[in-house]
Design a protein around this nucleic acid. Structure first.
Length: 204
DNA sequence: AAAACGGGGGC
DNA sequence: GCCCCAGTTTT
């Protein structure tokens, strides 16, 4: 498998860098928590709407729960997520001077933040060499024959052996886009996939 | 290891 | 109308 060629094709297909707002670690953190089990095209507009009203941990901690719930009602689990957003904001203010932590261990202490979310924050907000494995990354890696495990943490380590370190932070966003539009969970559109000729199409 | 949380979008 | 989906926490 020619990894450089694979990344070249995906970068050419999805050339845009991080979405607007991703220069703010707090936006990356909250929008990623909102994204759990929810499609990107629903999550992102909802997160932007939320941040038009409340854009800092302090404003979010002060905000009325009902008002936040109303703003993010489009995403799934919105009541649970509102509680997490409030609690995360409170903890950031109380323990971290209102800032988003930039290390895995501290991020994992926040409610609603697991390894995938923490890696997204490290990669997208702090531009660290983190590799976030979600269902898209996992599924596509399996179809490409790059990994053969169901354990996300194993997938992360396997991919880190295969991909040069400079690519790690870009893998999640690129494969999520491919996973939504082309390499879908059910009935993937292999005919229009830029990776078609290098894909063994395992476990379609 | 499996259930629970939940509303939008594709078909 | 039915079924699936950018995970994490709890049982």
């Amino acid at each position: 498998m020619d990894i450089d060629e694979l990344m070249r094709r995906l970068s050419e297909l999805y050339p845009e860098d991080y979405p607007d707002g991703f220069q703010d670690p707090f936006f990356v953190l909250i929008s990623t928590v909102m994204s759990h089990r929810t499609r990107d095209n629903v999550t992102y507009p909802s997160a932007k709407k939320l941040f038009e009203k409340f854009s800092t941990a302090e404003e979010m901690a002060e905000a009325d729960v009902v008002e936040i719930e109303a703003l993010i009602r489009d995403v799934g689990f919105y009541r649970v997520k509102t509680g997490r957003i409030k609690e995360i904001s409170r903890i950031l203010l109380e323990k971290h001077d209102g800032r988003v932590p930039d290390d895995m261990e501290t991020l994992l202490e926040l409610p609603g933040v697991g390894r995938k979310t923490a890696n997204c924050v490290l990669a997208h907000a702090f531009l660290k060499d983190a590799l976030a494995v979600d269902t898209h990354v996992h599924r596509i890696s399996n179809r490409l024959g790059l990994v053969k495990t169901k354990v996300p943490e194993k997938t992360e380590n396997e991919l880190k052996k295969i991909f040069p370190q400079r690519y790690w932070k870009h893998i999640n966003l690129l494969l999520v886009k491919l996973g939504q539009n082309v390499c879908r969970p059910i009935s993937p559109r292999c005919g229009v996939c830029v990776l078609n000729d290098m894909c063994p199409k395992i476990l379609l």
